[in-house]
């Protein structure tokens, strides 16, 4: 599969702080590629670098396997960090400026304003727009000229739940049209729902990358308790297929394969002389998983 973007050992410092540390990855064409990381992990720095807004200390990047020059960016629709528009111009006039740079006809501004639900307010000054509307306008600007690649940095920032759902639907639609979408987000839920591939950033380092279903395996989490927790722990750690034991308040959370049956666990414990006082399936929140992926804490066991 062709590559839309390849990033090679990109490094960037802010003073002494290493914002990007030898980050390398490739974005396959026609994928919805998530860049996931907590606040301050280097997502925006990464996107700023590959759009030439920031200068890297070392490393390189390449769009569409070509030598990168500014005209390539006309085929990339970008929403970077915050919506950047002239407050004294209307949404329509602002988009006309973007369209002129992209070299696409001005009537395309009408199309993208309709897609993002802003057409009725097209002639209002940007200054009068609410936070959510500004974000939609930024998305509209990214869609101008029907670009082959769309780069979105926290696109659902500041939107209400309906707006968030709209945007996610839109991103999936764009992906279905055979475009490449690169989506930076601190919301694991968003990445998991929308993306096919993911790269996880933490403190400027790439800690994991691959297909979403490989990175986020679906383990089941079961909460158990018994009369003697020390013995229970010893016994349960010998259970075949156990992945992780996390002590909670008077209980353990154990991670097992999703297809494991509760009865099997109960029987196993009983056969090893423990009568469980609690056995309950808990759904692990995706956010916990994300924290787990990006936190320094040593894992148990």
């Amino acid at each position: 599969m062709a590559t839309a973007l390849s990033v090679d050992r990109l490094t960037k410092y802010y003073g002494n702080l290493c914002a990007l540390d030898q980050v390398s990855f490739e974005v396959p064409e026609r994928s919805i590629f998530g860049i996931l990381g907590p606040n301050g992990s280097g997502k925006t720095t990464l996107l700023g670098t590959i759009t030439d807004v920031l200068k890297p200390a070392s490393g390189s990047y390449q769009w569409f396997d070509k030598k990168t020059d500014h005209t390539l960016r006309k085929q990339i629709g970008t929403l970077l960090e915050t919506p950047n528009f002239y407050p004294y111009l209307s949404a329509y006039d602002n988009l006309c400026i973007n369209a002129t740079i992209k070299g696409c006809p001005k009537n395309d501004a009408e199309r993208v304003l309709k897609i993002t639900g802003l057409w009725e307010r097209a002639y209002s000054l940007f200054r009068t727009y609410s936070l959510g509307m500004r974000q939609r306008l930024a998305l509209a600007a990214a869609l101008l000229g029907n670009p082959a690649v769309i780069l979105l940095d926290e696109p659902t920032n500041g939107l209400d739940p309906a707006g968030i759902a709209d945007i996610r639907k839109l991103i999936i639609e764009i992906g279905n049209q055979g475009k490449t979408v690169i989506l930076a987000s601190h919301l694991l839920d968003e990445v998991e729902k929308v993306c096919s591939h993911v790269a996880i950033l933490k403190k400027g380092k790439l800690i994991s990358k691959g297909a979403v279903n490989e990175i986020f395996s679906n383990d089941a989490i079961i909460e158990i308790a018994g009369p003697d927790m020390a013995v229970l722990r010893q016994v349960i750690s010998g259970y075949p297929g156990i992945k992780k034991i996390t002590p909670m308040n008077n209980t353990f959370h154990i991670a097992v394969e999703d297809n494991m049956l509760d009865e099997d666990i109960n029987r196993y414990c009983f056969e090893h002389g423990i009568t469980l006082s609690l056995l309950k399936r808990v759904k692990e929140s995706l956010e916990n998983k994300f924290i787990e992926l990006t936190e320094d804490k040593a894992q148990i066991p």
């Binding site: 700023g48 759009t51 030439d52 807004v53 020059d69 500014h70 005209t71 390539l72 960016r73 006309k74 990339i76 970008t78 970077l80 915050t82 950047n84 528009f85 002239y86 407050p87 400026i97 973007n98 740079i101 992209k102 070299g103 600007a141």
Partner: peptide, 14 residues
């Protein structure tokens, strides 16, 4: 307004 950024990412050169 950070529009200098926007123009660069839209495709004009620095």
């Amino acid at each position: 307004f950070k529009t200098h950024r926007q123009q660069i990412i839209d495709g004009i050169s620095r």
